[in-house]
Design a protein around this nucleic acid. Structure first.
Lengths: 200, 200
DNA sequence: CTGCAATTACTAACAGTGTTAGCAAATGTA
DNA sequence: TACATTTGCTAACACTGTTAGTAATTGCAG
């Protein structure tokens, strides 16, 4: 009896149409003006239907956070695969991170800016775990072939990530204060400093 | 005729009572649950009175952003005055920045997280300018007495700030992922890397 | 093919938000 | 005392997220 399966398929269609509508709304007018009612209007259903697929508005945002981390992890994975030298890998991943942030500004803002994802939910984001793995493995390799081996890879990973996030978000908010290609210079500066310290 | 002056004084009292009420509300329940109506209730006035003192809710938040940058600049100024060695000054200011962020979490989140202050308004925040000056002057001194003098102090300032902000915000959102005094270690790690690169 | 059960989608409402138009009262000035 | 100005209010508008209750559709068993 494929009836229930067809029903499930139809239900899934509505679900994806919800997140599609939400995405286009966000890309057009930002998170601020994303409302349940406007999603309902876009998918040509009434409001309560949305609550059959998502517990509340936050659940929709969480969905985007998840896929956001997934996209980020994919980008980094791709960047890392371009080289097998750990230092170059780190450099490439830093660039990939930067590009992801500015090519998917809305995603990035949701992932890091507004929501401040619940501390507990952090470990339940698969993309985030992969993200960490990608960076940590490269960092470990650099440390392994360095004179000073008493460095904590996990600490270094957090430092690396913090530096990246700081660069991105400061540049996102105070765009005018930096002019021209200053942004890329700052990125290069910070990342090369970090890698240099890591190799010592 | 001191009448108009007394009136002005009374008006100012209402104004400060508005921001005081707003602050306590925020400290108790966060920015999320700050509403015009709750402020009105707290100051025992009706809602439209608030609009006689602030153009809209955003203006109230801007007020907090302003004083936030002022407080931050004061903290850094104080920290810097403890030493006249530029490297120690940078270290002290980094620590002051860190402490400010976590001792005034709500301010910090408003200043950097949620609002993403309008790009144009950036240059109209006096505290922000002072903040920049404090860091740049120390950075310039370090560069001046270093072998390699072809470093852009402005670029280094942005890097320094970005690193700091990244450290703070990553730690604010993913508090559980780091355990114990890891946080301070990460701070020390990143800042010492930066200063080391600056001295070369 | 009809009657019943379950799903589906709806209208309408509740409680809250920022914001403002219009009016009444209090206040200072002539 | 009469007028003008300021001051503060009530009430409304247009939104927001969320949900209770209801009507219609649908699938299945007799």
């Amino acid at each position: 009896m494929g009836i229930t399966e067809r029903r499930q398929r139809q239900k899934d269609e509505v679900r994806t149409s919800i997140i599609n509508a939400a995405r286009t709304l966000v890309l057009e007018e930002g998170w601020q003006s994303l409302s349940i009612r406007r999603i309902a209007e876009a998918i040509e259903y009434s409001v309560p239907v949305i609550y059959d697929h998502f517990e509340n508005k936050d659940a929709i945002l969480t969905e985007f956070t998840m896929t956001g981390y997934d996209m980020l992890a994919k980008s980094l994975k791709q960047a890392k695969s371009q080289s097998d030298q750990p230092c170059q890998q780190l450099d490439a991943m830093a660039n990939a991170y930067w590009n992801f942030a500015f090519e998917n500004k809305e995603y990035y803002q949701l992932m890091f800016g507004l929501g401040m994802p619940n501390c507990e939910s952090a470990r339940s984001i698969p993309g985030l775990a992969e993200f960490g793995e990608l960076l940590i493995t490269s960092i470990k390799e650099v440390i392994a072939s360095s004179p000073n081996q008493d460095k904590d890879p996990f600490l270094k990973y957090h430092t690396f990530w913090s530096v990246l996030h700081g660069l991105v978000s400061i540049n996102m908010m105070h765009k005018t204060t930096t002019h021209g290609n200053m942004n890329e210079l700052i990125l290069k500066d910070a990342i090369s400093s970090f890698i240099k310290a890591l190799k010592e």
